[in-house]
């Protein structure tokens, strides 16, 4: 293709100079390509401070989505954004902050990770991306740690009565974060200012 600028008379000004490459669905056949050994274990199970983050992805009829892919990206427990290689080939002790997990037959994903710290005074959260067959473009959301008395931030306040879909819930020492693509408890998914429609 040829790179196209967005200065055509017909097109409204995009906030960027180059038009974005459109997304497409991840399709049904990514399972032999994207998953890798240790993809969902940001730390080895049994590591001091290891935390289970898990949940179920459901569709508009409430049924589990068995062929979704969930990715997380997070700060370390002290709130540092780690820039360290090794997410694809984990060495067993370096925390990289990135993880990837397919959903199983019950629509469930599960990561073994560390509790993210607050970055620059914000509320601590996992940045989450969701891919699936039938989903034409990836979806972004945030999985906030339970507030435990903290004040909601701007996003949680603006989400109104749907804000609870952005919050992890305590689940017997683990954190649970269910993702509803559609339906009664549809998750709040995010759009960024500069991405263009």
């Amino acid at each position: 293709m040829t790179l196209t600028t967005t200065t055509d008379a017909a097109a409204p000004a995009l906030p960027t100079a180059l038009a974005p490459t459109p997304g497409q669905t991840v399709g049904p056949f990514f399972h032999y390509a994207l998953p890798y050994d240790g993809d969902r274990e940001l730390v080895a199970p049994g590591t001091p401070g290891a935390l289970l983050l898990h949940g179920t992805v459901t569709d508009g009829s409430g049924l589990p989505v068995r062929d979704a892919l969930v990715e997380i990206w997070q700060a370390d427990p002290s709130g540092r954004v780690v820039q360290r290689q090794g997410s694809l080939r984990r060495d067993g002790h370096s925390f990289t902050g990135f993880g990837r997990c397919t959903t199983d037959r019950t629509g469930r994903y599960a990561f073994t990770t560390l509790r993210p710290g607050a970055v620059e005074g914000g509320l601590p959260f996992f940045a989450v991306t969701v891919f699936a067959r039938g989903l034409l473009h990836r979806l972004f959301t945030r999985a906030y740690l339970p507030l435990d008395g903290a004040e909601p931030d701007a996003l949680l306040r603006s989400a109104g009565d749907r804000a609870d879909t952005l919050l992890c819930v305590d689940d017997e020492g683990a954190l649970r974060f269910d993702i509803g693509l559609q339906g009664e408890r549809e998750t709040v998914f995010l759009r960024w200012p500069r991405e263009g429609r």
């Binding site: 669905t25 569709d59 508009g60 009829s61 049924l63 989505v65 990206w73 997070q74 700060a75 954004v81 780690v82 820039q83 360290r84 290689q85 997410s87 694809l88 990289t96 902050g97 990135f98 993210p116 607050a118 970055v119 620059e120 914000g122 959260f125 940045a127 699936a132 067959r133 039938g134 989903l135 034409l136 979806l139 945030r142 701007a154 996003l155 603006s158 989400a159 749907r162 693509l181 559609q182 549809e186 998750t187 709040v188 998914f189 995010l190 759009r191 960024w192 200012p193």
Partner: peptide, 26 residues
């Protein structure tokens, strides 16, 4: 396949913050 798998509500505007302003390092 998109019928039951697309969000029905508008995507919610958010300003990226914290980790969202960085990418994993490979």
């Amino acid at each position: 396949s998109s019928l039951l798998r697309h969000p029905t509500k508008d995507l919610h505007h958010a300003d990226p913050e914290g980790v969202e302003l960085w990418a994993p390092c490979f």
